[in-house]
């Protein structure tokens, strides 16, 4: 049973079509990397799929009632907003809101989920610090932990690892892979194609609001696609320690 089914999804900003009849499905066990240049429509696609902005076409998520959707899919927006100096633990606990009955306080299960999410994102030492006092990368990890605490079959994340140090970038991507191995699925937009190649089971290449390619990283990041969608040339090798992708130069 697919976790997300999108068909003919179109969205406009003003007169410009930002998304043009996009369709794909996401199955359990997948880590789907959403790649494309700035303005290709990655963020719009994720938000439209969630039903957070007006769009035509179909999305199985947007069709759900909001409360049920929040238990099915977690969303990490690109803008890493933390409005108040709440502790990291309180921030991560916000991910439990969809699981709380009206007026209920967080119970043992909620606290356990928060503790597990904090541990996975290496935040145990920061749990009681005000989230607004952390560095940008630490805040990003706290917000990823919030998404993990939501404990949903599907996670949509918009540039979750941008600004993280390399070690925590890998750790976050590996965490997504581990969740996929549990039978969940993650859709994540990325600019770091090297990271995408190593950690995603499948890539969606978005170009001018359409899906230009969809498949395993090797099949998507062909020289032709890279030139057309990104205007770059790159080096791609399979090594004993997995695939390695290195962009080389911008094409004239």
């Amino acid at each position: 049973m697919s976790l997300l089914r999108v068909q003919n999804l179109s969205a406009r900003r003003g007169l410009r079509a930002v998304l043009d009849r996009v369709g794909f499905t996401v199955e359990p066990g997948e880590v789907v990397g959403l790649v494309g240049r700035n303005g290709a429509g990655k963020t719009t696609l994720l938000r439209a799929a969630l039903g957070l902005l007006p769009a035509s076409g179909e999305s199985s998520l947007a069709a759900m009632p909001p409360a049920a959707r929040a238990r099915h899919a977690a969303w990490m927006p690109q803008s890493r907003e933390i409005a108040w100096p709440v502790t990291v633990e309180t921030l991560v606990m916000l991910g439990r809101i969809p699981h709380l009955a009206a007026g209920a306080r967080p119970g043992d299960a909620d606290r356990a989920a928060v503790a597990a999410a904090l541990r996975r994102m290496d935040l145990d030492d920061l749990a009681h610090r005000p989230a607004t006092e952390l560095s940008g990368g630490e805040q990003a990890r706290a917000l990823i932990a919030r998404v993990l605490a939501q404990d949903t079959p599907l996670i949509l994340a918009d540039e979750p690892v941008a600004g993280l140090d390399p070690g925590h970038q890998m750790a976050a991507m590996e965490e997504f892979r581990r969740l996929a191995a549990e039978g969940r699925a993650v859709v994540v937009s990325l600019h770091d194609l090297g990271l995408a190649v190593r950690h995603c089971s499948r890539l969606l290449l978005l170009h001018d609001g359409r899906i230009a390619a969809d498949g395993p990283p090797r099949a998507v990041l062909t020289a032709d696609n890279l030139a057309r969608a990104f205007g770059i040339a790159a080096h791609f090798v399979d090594t004993a320690r997995g695939p390695v992708f290195q962009p080389l130069e911008a094409l004239p």
Binding site: R47, L50, L52, P66, A67, A68, R69, A70, R71, A73, A74, W75, M76, P77, S79, E81, I82, A83, W84, V86, L91, L94, G95, I97, P98, L143, R146, Q150
Partner: peptide, 12 residues
């Protein structure tokens, strides 16, 4: 606290 987008996705 997480912004309008994230709050909306949390079912608010």
């Amino acid at each position: 606290t997480l912004g309008e987008d994230a709050a909306g996705a949390l079912g608010i």
